[in-house]
């Protein structure tokens, strides 16, 4: 029974199958919302309401010719997309869904899984950098340098922002943090500032407008992915989609009280909360113009990081008051 449950967990929910299906749905949702915000339709004619659009994109890319540029580091170039996908999928397993028993640590929920999840979510950035570097194209190289530069910008505010609810809850375990806020929903409010910072940082992590600097098409063509085509591009796109789901799941778990109540109700919570976060991300994408790389760093260190520290201060004071 336990083996079956583990397999189910790994491959069906919230493992690979679910992540694939749900991430494509989320991409559709994101594209549709983005299009509707711009007063147009977005994908419509692929499946009903265009729901199958991301899947069609994925299959088409799989079926396309796969070009490896002559100058590229072939080993790295080939292996990185799969590696990136593996990393984000592994991160997806750590989301606190389907945890029936809080008291028992399992391989998916343990003290400190928040840190592991954050770490796993940082890896794709490095993978993208390596991928860009290994393709030895001017535009890719510039894109790669930009990826790393941005990493230094947004990672610290993100960690600090996620820290504050964890401190208030007094745990490094996602499931416990979620349970804490389920018990005291009002305490979500003091974390709103951190939530806002985290949303912005996640936007940067996902390289979406206004932070789509590494692959800004009007500046450096495809940027990091200029040389990737076919299967590899498909895997990278899927990686971004899953990363979007996992990071919005993380925000939902940490800031919005997680996904309580068994498989079905928990699933509903998951869908509603992640879609809410994704809606916010889409809104930011539609609202802003791309900023320059120096402006990202300025924004992160001048505004986001100090605000995150302020938030931490508030939380620590609050914790003192409460106890």
């Amino acid at each position: 029974m336990a083996v079956l449950r583990t397999l189910l967990y790994l491959f069906v929910y919230p493992g690979l199958l679910f992540l694939f299906a749900y991430s494509t749905f989320c991409e559709w949702f994101d594209r549709k919302v983005f299009a509707r915000l711009q007063n147009r339709m977005g994908p419509t004619h692929t499946g009903s309401f265009g729901l199958l659009q991301p899947i069609a994109d994925f299959i088409k890319l799989l079926a396309k010719e796969d070009v490896v540029p002559a100058a590229a580091d072939k080993g790295l170039f080939r292996v990185l997309p799969a590696f990136g996908l593996a990393v984000v999928s592994a991160a997806g397993l750590l989301l606190p869904v389907w945890n029936f028993d809080l008291a028992v640590p399992s391989f998916t929920s343990f003290q400190g899984d928040l840190i592991v999840l954050l770490y796993l979510l940082s890896l794709p950035t490095l993978i993208i950098f390596l991928a860009a570097w290994s393709s030895t194209n001017y535009f890719s190289s510039i894109g790669g340098a930009r990826v790393l530069t941005m990493l230094f910008g947004y990672e610290v505010p993100l960690f600090l922002a996620v820290l504050s609810p964890a401190i208030l809850a007094g745990s490094w375990r996602l499931a416990e943090i979620a349970a804490f806020y389920q018990a005291k929903p009002l305490l979500i409010l003091p974390n709103l500032l951190a939530f806002a910072i985290a949303v912005v940082a996640v936007q940067a992590k996902l390289e979406r407008c206004p932070f789509d600097i590494p692959h800004a098409e009007t500046e450096i063509v495809g940027g990091t992915f200029t040389e990737f085509s076919g299967k590899k591009l498909a895997l990278f796109r899927l990686m971004f989609d899953i990363e979007m789901v996992v990071s919005s799941g993380l925000l939902a778990a940490v800031f919005l009280g997680g996904f309580p109540g068994g498989a079905l109700v928990g699933f509903a919570h998951l869908v509603v909360k992640t879609l809410f976060v994704i809606f916010l991300l889409s809104l930011i994408r539609a609202l802003t113009s791309r900023i320059r790389i120096d402006q990202v760093v300025t924004l992160a260190w001048k505004y986001l990081a100090p605000l995150a520290v302020l938030q931490l201060l508030i939380i620590i004071l609050l914790k003192g008051l409460l106890s």
Binding site: R36, L37, Q38, N39, R40, A286, L287
Partner: peptide, 15 residues
């Protein structure tokens, strides 16, 4: 741009 964007979200698209 927010008000305009949100308004279009609930409006029939121009398409």
């Amino acid at each position: 741009f927010l008000p305009e964007l949100l308004r279009s979200l609930f409006k029939k698209p121009n398409t």
